[in-house]
Nucleic acid binder design. Structure first.
Lengths: 329, 329
DNA sequence: TTGTATGCGTTATCAG
DNA sequence: CTGATAACGCATACAA
């Protein structure tokens, strides 16, 4: 008989099993106890359908069993897939995820909020203005290096850029273009360009590049594309866009100009975003290993204090055909 | 000076303010205390940057301050926008959201999990097999009526169907088609068809309909479309698809067949999903009021026990042009 | 109105 | 190895 509201407590289990409270706690936490004791406790737990109260536990061990995820939003398909994978990985380990979106609201108040007693660690994916983190809280960042002692997890942006260039070249493109975003904050994402440029230089491939200032500022790219289109023919035959979203905008613009992809020129994006989250890709793309990234973040943020952590962890990417490149042979 | 780990407790505040512990608690919870007492406590709170420990509070008041969201996944753009809005609305009221995705994992174990002591209420958006909810826990459902005493919030599916039919008709379509999904579980979503059919009948518009068995079963629709295309011309000039995702699949199929949208036929979907979550719509669509739905869900699930709740709450939708209908004048 | 004491469900300490 | 018992931080009935 459970005492009051129906949820059995450890005390109930102890009484049911005829053992002391501490013994139950030990069994629950996997601390060795006598064989017969253990089985009796196990039976009582099963009978009462007992489950530990996370709140009491948290209070006692001074851990929240919660990891905060700071992310711009969750409706952008890339962010949401990251969030989903993180959530799964965390709950698999008995942690909950506290979702903090920053698009509408100041990030700093969020930081102070969780510095108090709401999270045991922070996973942050944010390209926005500088934020400083609460002392002593493990922080793992995605795609951005805040400081040497804050682990950063990202896809292999540099390698991805190389792959994109190599792919375009292999598909017959000889004059390439990189369309990117010139952010005010330095992130790993810029390495996509570096890898691309590196490959082009190394192989002696001619290329151009153009940058916009943000995701909502397409004008520079439009001007650039305009200036490179003569008599309906573009000055290049292969484009590497810094993201699928950027690539999509480019495609839309090109098609408005009467150009056809991939016939007139081929295009590769980055991220691996699918329509509706699970249909076809928006464009041929360098796919980020979202699940691996999530797993790495969780492992790092849950790491024992004191163990050495890498300052940067790059996970491999791969190319996926998505209709904006000519399928090979 | 905070005692041990740096986080000040109520006791610290009491000592700092020179009042009793209970007084601090009262101030924090807005219970009237003497004016001078209150100001002293407030000052101490500010000085120490005190913040209540949610876990201790939860333990004491036997509430988790947590609402569970049960949803198939979070990468589908519609689901993720719902999740984001719910999260914002909940955190605005001091609640956290516990995200439970059901796509990969059994839903029932989730239910029992939260019946124990993890959530004060449940918001569920799931079309999957029957699930029974823990006793005494407030449950609000989206798009599906589990039982008369479980509030259901949805967009005005019936009205949306009518709007779609009316719109197509107003745009000159005279032979319509409805493409839907025949689910095994009855949901509010089916009313999209009902509203559509109702309008057609009422106006004497001829129409056909075809159903698939699930989102991953496009074959029936393909067969249907095939059989209705003669010499490159479809037997109808307007399509209402039960969702944007369905509409997108249809568009893709039609374009593979050499048909042009909206020239050869016009198409309206449902949901209001944008590419990448914030670009243009995939198709002309009936837009769901996601934020309103979220707000309604939160209000209902947080409602005081005993207050009467509606068994069904329909929120208005509206049409948005998305390139698959001919823009009006 | 203010202060005190008790207990929420756990874990951890320490004596048997 | 086991079993009482003392916190953890807070809210609240109860006493002052």
């Amino acid at each position: 008989m459970s005492l009051k509201n129906g949820t059995p407590t450890m005390k109930d289990v102890a009484r049911e099993a005829g053992v002391a409270l501490g013994t139950v706690s030990k069994v629950v936490n996997g601390i060795p106890v006598g064989e017969d004791y253990k089985s009796r406790v196990d039976r009582a737990i099963a009978k009462l359908n007992y489950q530990v109260n996370d709140f009491a536990k948290s209070l006692k061990i001074a851990k929240t069993l919660t990891i905060a995820l700071i992310i711009p939003n969750i409706y952008n398909t890339f962010y949401s897939s990251i969030a989903e994978s993180l959530n799964m990985e965390l709950s698999k380990r008995g942690y909950r995820m506290l979702l903090c979106t920053t698009d509408r609201g100041d990030e700093q108040s969020i930081m102070t909020m969780m510095s108090q007693n709401r999270a045991d660690g922070i996973i942050v994916l944010s390209y926005s203005t500088k934020l400083d983190f609460p002392e002593g809280l493990p922080v793992v960042s995605i795609d951005r290096r805040f400081s040497p002692d804050i682990s950063c997890v990202s896809s292999d942006n540099y390698g991805g850029g190389q792959i994109a260039a190599a792919k375009l070249y292999a598909l017959g493109c000889r004059r390439l273009a990189f369309l990117g975003t010139a952010t005010d904050v330095e992130t790993e994402v810029t390495k996509r360009r570096d890898g691309f440029v590196s490959y082009c230089r190394q192989q002696g491939i001619s290329f151009e590049e153009c940058f916009r200032t943000g995701a909502d500022d397409f004008a520079p790219l439009a001007d650039f594309l305009d200036s490179r289109i003569r008599r309906g023919k573009p000055a290049f035959d292969g484009i590497f866009a810094i993201s699928d979203a950027c690539g999509y905008q480019v495609m839309r613009y090109l098609s408005a100009k009467g150009l056809h992809v991939p016939e007139d020129l081929q295009l590769i994006g980055y991220d691996g975003i699918r329509k509706f989250g699970y249909f076809d890709y928006f464009c041929s793309t360098i796919v980020q290993p979202v699940e691996d990234i999530a797993r790495a973040c969780v492992e790092l943020v849950l790491r024992e204090k004191g163990t050495a952590v890498p300052s940067l962890l790059c996970l491999p990417v791969h190319f996926e055909e998505g209709g904006t490149t000519t399928p090979q042979r």
